[in-house]
Design a protein around this nucleic acid. Structure first.
Lengths: 200, 200
DNA sequence: ACTAATAACGAACGTTCGTGCTTTTATTGC
DNA sequence: GCAATAAAAGCACGAACGTTCGTTATTAGT
């Protein structure tokens, strides 16, 4: 690994943390350079544009997310236990990843939802992938007999995302100390519902 | 109503719509002035600072929200019917209010959650008020016998907010045409859960 | 109609923004 | 240790930012 590649990693790491606080649009080359003690142009040369930087930050964050949340959860048994493992790690991942401003994907999702472009496209792809992972685990939960067989895995994935967004809102904006407890209660409500057959 | 007050309303109205797309931080005096065909300084004079403008936009949006969502829903019978009315109007309110960029409060919540200051404080107060309204309606639902008497109204309010955030995410970022259906399904899951006594 | 007050204007301020070019400094391969 | 290469710095650019100033139109009260 050349030296450039190394500093590039350092830049992306810091950019990811900064973006969790101020958003991807709030990132500024000047601010990053100042924080890292290097020149604007020297930093800029690692990326062809700010847009490229933003996209790379997203990629880096998703790698970290997989490493911190997804991979370890795969150690849990298929079906419900694995879903629980995913949920707990997801709930805690901004702490584990030391993201000072909360989940970067939540921030990016809101600020990019009306801004077409490659960065938005990449985020959408990542989010759909993640929802797909959840849905697949839920689906396995059906075949394992943990959940009712008329459960809609995509709906459960969607609902789980809602629980996480609610947690983010309560924890970050409202600074509600019960946020995690509320999220877990919401999760249990969803899981309970997966057991009763629902009227179509 | 003097002339100044009128143009001030026009400015705030447009600023609110613009902010729903680009966020409160994304608002710029120059852009607003250009859109409305007036000078930067003339527009600026209506507010002492950009921060004041942002705060006023929030106030304006909450007035609109009350008018469009809360007030009409109060016509529905107390308890569950009123909660349903609130939910349906909430789900549709950005369309009714003609906000092109989705719910302004969602956007503001994410971008302000790490930025202390009067604007953030105002948003937090507004959000707590709104959650309080939901909780109070849910609470009435208990005394009306619609919901189990060990239901936690604050938890239901929190969960409902999560459903709405999930809807926003699916509709705005993922452009999922099933977003509204998903949100309604999540709502019904929550309501069903309020009927069964839960183990403490 | 004349005056006092309000509203809007145009220009400029100092910063910061992203992005080029050119030059200097570090690192690498032989 | 020297040459080739990669990385960072330095400098400058045009544009946009929020804000202030002094001045001109427009309105409202008498």
């Amino acid at each position: 690994m050349g030296k450039g590649e190394n500093t590039r990693d350092v830049i992306l790491d810091h950019a990811m943390r900064l973006a969790s606080e101020v958003g991807l649009a709030g990132l500024s080359i000047g601010r990053l350079a100042k924080d890292l003690g290097m020149s604007k142009s020297g930093l800029f040369a690692h990326f062809q544009s700010k847009e490229m930087l933003q996209a790379q930050v997203l990629v880096r964050a998703s790698q970290l997310f997989i490493e911190i949340v997804v991979r370890p959860a795969l150690a849990a048994p298929r079906g419900e236990p694995r879903l629980r493992a995913l949920f707990e790690r997801w709930l805690d991942w901004t702490r584990t990843a030391a993201l000072p401003g909360g989940c970067l994907f939540v921030t990016a999702a809101v600020e990019l939802d009306d801004r077409p472009g490659p960065v938005r496209d990449r985020l959408v792809a990542l989010q759909k992938e993640w929802l797909g992972v959840i849905a697949r685990v839920a689906s396995t939960g059906i075949s394992e007999g943990h959940f009712a067989d008329n459960l809609d895995p995509d709906q459960l994935a969607h609902d789980l995302y809602g629980v996480m967004l609610g947690y983010h809102h309560a924890a970050r904006l409202l600074r509600d100390p019960r946020a995690a407890a509320r999220a877990r209660a919401g999760f249990e409500t969803l899981l309970t519902a997966t057991r009763a057959r629902r009227s179509a």
